[in-house]
Nucleic acid binder design. Structure first.
Lengths: 133, 133
DNA sequence: GTATTAGGGATATTAGGAGTCTCTAATATC
DNA sequence: GATATTAGAGACTCCTAATATCCCTAATAC
């Protein structure tokens, strides 16, 4: 069980966008080069982020992506849900109601998600920025 | 990202074995029927559990599996590690040292594993037993 | 010896992730 | 309005890992 590469790329992309000046649009070209990805592939991932309302896109010349103005406080969990979907990590193989194993697994997953919800991308971006100076 | 079916089957199998009388051997035939699986497939999973030291196997007529005598306090994490392997859920796609994203993800994973380590199968087995009565 | 059961290896089969290509739609600039 | 540029959508290929089966071997009870 592993997080997909898409999640990995998405998180890095989001942090990069967070470090941009306000309202500055960044094209998929630049974002892809930074991570050594093909633009068409990263484009798929960015569309997911757009649909999830985490970034806003502008098509056409001089277009690109920027962090959503409406949604503040974007968390790790937000990005992960956008790329991985929000299905649960474990479902009892025997479909008997109230499976005790399932219950334990769900609790553990819930706690992890709760932690990832409390971690904000903006904090990571700021920390990365301060380290570079 | 999901836990494999193997993990699901393994957990149910372990709980079933825990409910057996001491030193009682259960064949893969019975274990497979209970979960509507093919014996050959479940056999593969049981071999992993054996190698991880969670169960003990006896080949030959009247053979089968039983919970390990030496390893007490078997946790959810023990079973998961046996079936999933112990690789991390997330590795930074750009291989830059001290990635802050990676750091956050590792912390969340660590917490989940810590919780799954504290959950013992024997408690689940006992609870299931009391519910059936 | 014979029946039974675990273990190991080889081999399909399948599902989903990873990634590319092409066409369409929207926007800026001239 | 024409053109260049950029996001979006869909079909498609490729690869890997999970899933599952089959067959042979080794060990054990009787």
């Amino acid at each position: 069980m592993r997080y997909s590469n898409a999640t990995n790329y998405a998180l890095h992309t989001m942090v990069h966008l967070m470090l941009q000046p306000r309202e500055n649009l960044v094209g998929v070209q630049e974002l892809a080069e930074m991570q050594h990805l093909s633009p068409t592939y990263l484009s798929k991932i960015l569309t997911k982020l757009t649909k999830a309302g985490l970034v806003e896109s502008t098509p056409g010349a001089k277009g690109g992506y920027k962090i959503s103005r409406t949604k503040h406080e974007i968390s790790f969990l937000d990005v992960i849900n956008a790329t991985e979907g929000d299905n649960s990590l474990f479902d009892c193989s025997i479909h008997h109601e109230g499976c005790l194993i399932e219950k334990v697994m769900w609790q553990a997953e819930e706690n992890m998600k709760s932690e990832l919800k409390s971690k904000l991308l903006i904090d990571i971006a700021k920390e990365a920025e301060s380290k570079q100076e």
